[in-house]
Design a protein around this nucleic acid. Structure first.
Lengths: 277, 277
DNA sequence: CGCACTTTTGAACAGAATCAAGTTTTGTGG
DNA sequence: CCACAAAACTTGATTCTGTTCAAAAGTGCG
């Protein structure tokens, strides 16, 4: 598949390959957020598809646990969509915080900068995951959310979902659960960066991706990495060379099979044994 | 004050130095959570002192932003106190999650274990800070919360504060703000562990402590570390030897003055220059 | 006073970073 | 469709920061 376009999840093995998507120019500097105008007529259809009640990611996202009636109310909030082209930012550090975002399709990274050149990628977000939670506290975003492929998000105005959460206990709980899980995920990552060897970090990273892809119905044992070696390194606290070497080593050990961005987890048990915990 | 039950904050420079606190036996294995029976008669007084509306940490904690009437309602929730002796656990990984906790006095660490010996301390919590947020997602605690000195917490039943947050928007917002800030703090730490040298990590750690102590009315330029070098290392992803060496180096450079647990930040600017970001 | 714990410091070692070169892949424009 | 340029990836050699191993000194408490 040359460049597959369709706002694919991440696996590439769920939807059939589709017609080529036209590539927009995407220079590294060209990262304004862009909202697409939909062609006239498509609006209604899109709204239908868009509703939480119709969304296939339903039970992974904020809608989890809601009754049918409440789902309909949530639909009102999540009408607004925003497309973000590859290498463009959904939001940037310093921008005022108004909304959180649920990834509908595509793949994001959230990166913080350390003043000098160094950057840390706090996480990668795929379909059904939330973006922007760290902006609540200060009323402005603290990191850049950049699409790694052409993507689409649901825009969820935060004040409004807060209001709705007051009326719908299940929504409130869902929101809290997601925030808490994101914290738990961060703590695991902290532990990994604090204690893990390069091999443990990479193995854990692959298993985490695999797990999240499985949850979304993609094959967990073979997938395409949406990020570069450098970005993996910025996430795991390693250099791109070390990431590359470690992937090669895991391959030599027979745990995985790597070919550029394509990864196959050949010996899952070996990976699990390699990962700590 | 025989066994210091004077649950001191953390500075040690706010209250006058007192008579030696009698050490309870504090074997590593002796870490059950213990709720003290208060001496008869003291109950009423304590409840009064205990109320959020009377609490000096008021604006740092969940009560922040509440109006006087709502504060009174919150007081109903936060009646329950729990003392935790040094080296005992407030909760442990795996225990069912029912409540979050606000540190009223004392000092905690939250540590996760990696199966093998390795441990990561995700954070240190001082007066006014929340404990247990990472348990919401799974309904059970994911780490151990251990008191580093005799401490006291407010027990906040989570289902009840959720209910109250539905009724009091300011409380809801306060809760969300605290969760978000904890995430933001984690992300900064991630960045530090991913990119920072030992010197940058230790300098940043000292500045963070200093800042939080200042917020609480303690001197930010001189304080007593409540944790061992090993615990600092488990937090920053360093060995205790490296922590010790780094503190010595910072002292040689004239940035700080260290004498066992006592730290004085002599040249704050130098520290800030050393810390990244 | 003695014992356990904590801290400091030194010396040797190891894992990842850095520096460097070469290859493959991808994208662009003719 | 091809050629060229840029980006991404791999691999090797060397360097360096922090770890490990080890010993000794300081501190606190019974």
């Amino acid at each position: 598949m040359s460049h597959n376009s369709e706002l694919t999840g991440t696996g590439g093995d769920r939807r059939a390959p589709t017609t080529e998507r036209r590539r927009r120019n995407r220079r590294a500097s060209d990262n304004r957020a862009v909202t697409f105008k939909l062609p006239p007529g498509s609006r209604t259809l899109n709204q239908l598809k868009a509703a939480c009640s119709q969304c296939s990611l339903h039970e992974l996202c904020v809608a989890n646990g809601l009754e049918i009636g409440d789902l309909a109310r949530l639909d009102q909030l999540t009408q607004k969509r925003q497309r973000v082209l590859r290498h463009q930012s959904l939001y940037k550090a310093g921008m005022p915080f108004h909304a959180i975002y649920a990834v509908r399709a595509g793949f994001f990274k959230t990166e913080g900068t350390l003043g000098d050149g160094r950057e840390q990628i706090s996480g990668f977000q795929m379909a059904g995951e939330l973006l922007g939670l760290d902006g609540i506290g200060e009323g402005r975003h603290l990191c850049n959310a950049v699409a790694l492929e052409d993507s689409e998000v649901c825009v969820i105005p935060f004040a409004e979902i807060e209001a709705m959460a007051r009326a719908i206990p299940a929504l409130q709980q869902s929101l809290h659960r997601l925030m808490s899980r994101s914290t738990a995920h961060d703590h695991k990552l902290l532990s990994l960066l604090g204690n893990g060897t390069a091999e443990e970090r990479v193995a854990t990273f692959l298993l985490d991706l695999s797990h999240r892809l499985s949850q979304r119905g993609y094959a967990g044992s073979e997938f395409v990495l949406r990020m570069t070696r450098e970005e993996i390194g910025q996430h795991l606290g390693l250099t791109l060379e070390t990431v590359s070497r470690t992937l090669s080593r895991l391959q030599r050990q027979g745990a995985i099979r790597v070919q550029q961005r394509l990864v196959r987890l050949v010996d899952m048990d070996a990976l699990v044994r390699t990962a700590p915990g």
